[in-house]
């Protein structure tokens, strides 16, 4: 039960950070912040995917690969956000 509450909190926080990034992007027009937004959003999606088995039957192997792939994409997005020139 506690892990479920923590996961929901993480998803909520990821969505909140995505929203903050969206506001920051709208204010500044900095493209690098769009990459941050995507990273936060994907982080929330990854967490939701990891809990998908509660709602429906899914292949755990596929889910694991997808989650790992998302982790890689998230890291890449953070990297691009920091190094990209606006």
């Amino acid at each position: 039960m506690i892990d479920m509450i923590l996961d929901v909190t993480i998803i909520g926080f990821a969505l909140f950070l995505s929203f903050i990034s969206w506001v920051a992007y709208k204010k500044s027009g900095m493209k690098s912040i769009l990459f941050l937004l995507l990273a936060f959003l994907l982080f929330g999606i990854k967490k939701a995917l990891e809990n998908l088995h509660i709602l429906t039957k899914v292949n755990e192997g596929t889910l694991e690969i997808t989650a790992t792939l998302l982790e890689l994409i998230i890291l890449l997005l953070f990297f691009i956000a920091v190094v990209k020139k606006d």
Binding site: I20, M30, I33
Partner: peptide, 10 residues
């Protein structure tokens, strides 16, 4: 406020 801090951080 948080968005402004994020902009400055970037």
């Amino acid at each position: 406020k948080l968005a402004d801090r994020l902009i400055d951080l970037m």
